[in-house]
Design a protein around this nucleic acid. Structure first.
Lengths: 220, 220
DNA sequence: TAGATTGTTAATCGATTAACAATC
DNA sequence: TAGATTGTTAATCGATTAACAATC
C-alpha cells in the first residue's frame, strides 16, 4: 500500500466510489476482449474522464500500475473487484414481488457475482407460495422471524412508497446493514446502515430538466 | 427573476439538478398532507441537507420564498415542476420488453406525469404483437420507420448490453434527444443528446463497497 | 413592532486537474 | 538507453456553508 493510500484510507470521497463500478465494467469488457494492458489515458478516453482522475482515484487504494507500461487489465480488474467488496458472497432478501421486484429477481448478473437472493416477501395473498427464481414468495409478516433464523446482508425494497419506511425498519431490526431501495421514498436509518437508492422518477426528471434546459438555451 | 438567477442561468451545476427531484418528491408529500408552508430549515431537516444549500439551489431559478415566512408549499411545488420541465408532455419509445422493460412499462407514475410510452420494440418474434400497457410490441427493425412517422422525445433502452449502443444509434438517428439507459453500457452520443443512466449493477456495487468499508474500519 | 426567514455574499471546504519527478 | 506512464504534489476550480443585511 502506498503512503497516499494509507493516508487516505479513512475517507474515500463518494465521487471516487461512484466511479469504481464504471472502471469495473470497462475493465471486465477489456478482459473479455483479451486486452492485456491499458493506460490511464486510454481508460479516460473510453469513459470520458481525465487520466489524472483515474490515477488519483486508484491511488486511494494502492499502486496498481507500472511506469512506462500502464496497468495490467486482469490484475487491475482483480484489484477493483477486491476493493468493491466482490470477493465475498452476500445474502439478499427482496421485499415486494411486483413488476420491479420480479425484474430484480430475474437479473442473473447479481447471482453470478455473489449477490444471492435467498428469500422474497410480499403482502399479496395471491402471490404467497409462488416460486420465483427458485424462491418461494413468503408473506411479509414472516420477515422478522425469517431474519432471526437466517441473517441477511442486504435488504431490497421494491414496495410501494407507503410501505417502504415500515419495511425498512423491519429489515434494520432484523440486522440488515445495507438497504437497496427501489421505492421513491426517503428512508431514515441508523448511522450504521447504508442506503443505496434507485429513484427511477428522480432519474427521469433529471432527464426532463436537461432536455428542457437545452431547448430553452437554444431558443435564447 | 433575481439577479442571481439571471446571472447563473447559463450553468446549473449537476448537483443542483440532482437535488431538484428530491425537493419535488417531498413537496408533493407535503402538499398531499395539506401542509401550507415550509422553511428551508424544515426542508433541510427532512431531507438531510443544510438549509443554506436548499436556498442556494432554489435561487438559481428565482425567488420563491418570503422573508420571515418561508415557502408556500403549493407555489414552490408548482415552480419546481416548471423548472423540471414537467409542464409539457413527453413521448417515449421503449426498446426491450424483457423483465426490466415490462417493469418500466407498467409503472403508472410516468404516464400520470406526462411521460407517455407510445411504442414498445423488441427483437424476440414471440413477443411481437403482444399488447403491453395498451401498446402493441413491434419488431425493432421497424424502429427507424416508426420514428420517421412519429417523432419521440425520449428513448428508453432496456436491452442487453450488447444491443444498447446499436439501439442508441437508431434512436439518435430517429431524432430522439434524450436517452434513458437501463443497460449496463456506456453509450456514445452526439453533444446535443442527453443520456441518463440507471446502472443497477453500479448501484449494487457501491452498496457492496460501503458495506465492506464499514466492516473494515470497525475491524481496525 | 419583534421575530423569523429569505436571498446573497464571502469564506471555507473539497474535488479535479496540470505538471513532473520517479522509474519501468 | 529512450520513450512512456505512473503516483503524487501543488494549483485550480467549483461546490458548500456560515453569516447577515434585507424585509415580510
Amino acid at each position: 500500500m502506498t503512503a497516499r493510500a494509507r493516508k487516505k484510507r479513512e475517507a474515500i470521497p463518494q465521487g471516487v466510489v461512484g466511479r469504481l463500478p464504471i472502471y469495473f465494467r470497462y475493465l471486465t469488457e477489456l478482459a473479455q476482449m483479451g486486452v492485456d494492458k491499458v493506460s490511464s489515458a486510454q481508460l479516460g478516453e473510453a469513459l470520458d474522464f481525465t487520466a489524472a482522475q483515474i490515477r488519483s482515484d486508484l491511488s486511494y487504494f494502492g499502486s496498481f500500475g507500472q511506469q512506462g507500461y500502464g496497468y495490467n487489465v486482469a490484475e487491475l480488474l482483480q484489484q477493483v473487484r477486491q476493493i468493491l467488496g466482490m470477493s465475498r458472497k452476500y445474502s439478499l432478501v427482496l421485499v415486494g414481488a411486483g413488476n420491479v421486484g420480479k425484474a430484480i429477481g430475474s437479473y442473473g448478473w447479481f447471482r453470478a457475482e455473489g449477490f444471492v437472493i435467498d428469500a422474497i416477501f410480499d403482502i399479496d395473498p395471491h402471490l404467497i407460495g409462488n416460486i420465483h427464481g427458485g424462491c418461494a414468495i413468503r408473506h411479509v409478516d414472516e420477515l422478522p422471524q425469517y431474519l432471526a433464523n437466517r441473517p441477511a446482508d442486504i435488504g431490497v425494497i421494491a414496495t410501494p412508497k407507503e410501505a417502504a419506511q415500515n419495511i425498512c425498519d423491519l429489515l434494520v431490526a432484523g440486522g440488515v446493514k445495507g438497504i437497496w431501495n427501489f421505492s421513491p421514498a426517503h428512508l431514515d436509518v441508523p448511522d450504521d446502515v447504508i442506503v443505496e437508492n434507485i429513484h427511477l422518477t428522480d432519474s427521469l426528471l433529471r432527464l426532463s430538466f436537461w432536455l428542457n434546459e437545452r431547448s430553452q438555451r437554444s431558443g435564447d
